[in-house]
Design a protein around this nucleic acid. Structure first.
Lengths: 183, 183
DNA sequence: CAGCAACTATAGCCGTGGCAATATTCCTGC
DNA sequence: GCAGGAATATTGCCACGGCTATAGTTGCTG
């Protein structure tokens, strides 16, 4: 009987990771909903607000979120209808348009951010002593660098010597880990 | 200017975690698709196969996945149509029905599992030396225990002294971490 | 035993978001 | 300058899945 396959440590490892993600995501969503925001809307506000002039072209916004360009069109539709952001024509390229945060959108974000940070602290970072947290993040960072879904993160400035490396798409084979020859 | 809020280490921490999840989930989905399975279908097959008699009541299946009961109805519809599982009436309770894996479903799972495990190894567990991996998993476990989305995992038998504790729903306040008084 | 509350699965309705097609606009080579 | 190809945003169509209502079933309680 091969029921053992499911106790494979690899399976439980991803199970753990996915459970943590699901649990945190659910709590975040619940808290954001109190402020009338969905997770994607929160992410959109975040990405826009951390961009110069609080704006981003639709395509760039799509690249920074987990959405396709049509998904971005839709979420921007909704948020524009709710007055959180606005579309503005791009002066230099008539094909593009900017999504820009309105004062109301900024306000909404400011309202929800403290609670969000508190939630992270309460359920994630605060659950571990600094050393364990550092170890956890270090491991995550290594995995992220391997699997990078084209690095949506903004804090990439740690190694300014290298340009973003372009991240052409997803490559098929994994990079070799530190000192762990496959065979 | 408060652009600094986004460089908050808490934000980057969850960003890291979510990126890793997204990256791994995308790769898994791509590999499973080669075998004609979606992620949820794979999870359904997994949960059923690791259950006694390769079957589970619809409600229990819903509880073990990220789906609602109606979502389970739908995915079971599809998988039954594809011949991967079958419905069977529960003899002791005429309200319930079992979802049971067919030989074809078992075969499909067996086909996709090796590649799946390999993928985990390649992009996740194999990226870290054993010590770092252990540290990562330990941290994740601690966070999971705090945030537990009612512990979908099956490997809960570590502490047989306690019954599953029922996990009534999600509680509003976080449990106190090891030695980290909130105030 | 009658009635009622709880449970189980399902179907209707709808929001969300991806893919492919489409219309504009830009750019490059000639 | 212009024809053709690439980029950009949007829309139609669809799959997926959650919420709620509903029907069938069980068990408890008066």
């Amino acid at each position: 009987m091969e029921a053992n396959t499911f106790d494979d440590p690899r399976i439980t490892a991803v199970g753990l990771l996915f459970e943590v993600h699901a649990g945190l995501a659910a709590r975040f969503a619940a808290q954001l909903e109190e402020h009338g925001l969905s997770s994607v809307e929160f992410e959109v506000l975040t990405r826009l607000t951390r961009s110069p002039a609080n704006q981003l072209r639709m395509t760039d916004l799509a690249a920074q979120t987990s959405l396709s360009t049509s998904g971005v069109t839709r979420v921007v539709d909704r948020m524009e209808r709710d007055g959180l952001i606005t579309r503005r024509a791009c002066p230099s390229d008539r094909r593009s348009s900017y999504a820009v945060v309105t004062p109301a959108g900024l306000r909404r974000l400011d309202e929800s951010l403290p609670g969000h940070l508190q939630l992270i602290e309460d359920w994630f970072t605060g659950q571990l002593d600094p050393a364990a947290l550092a170890a956890l993040l270090d491991g995550l960072r290594r995995v992220r660098d391997a699997v990078h879904p084209c690095a949506t993160a903004g804090s990439r400035s740690a190694a300014p010597g290298e340009p973003p490396a372009e991240c052409d798409e997803k490559e098929g084979r994994p990079p070799a880990p530190g000192g762990h020859p496959g065979r």
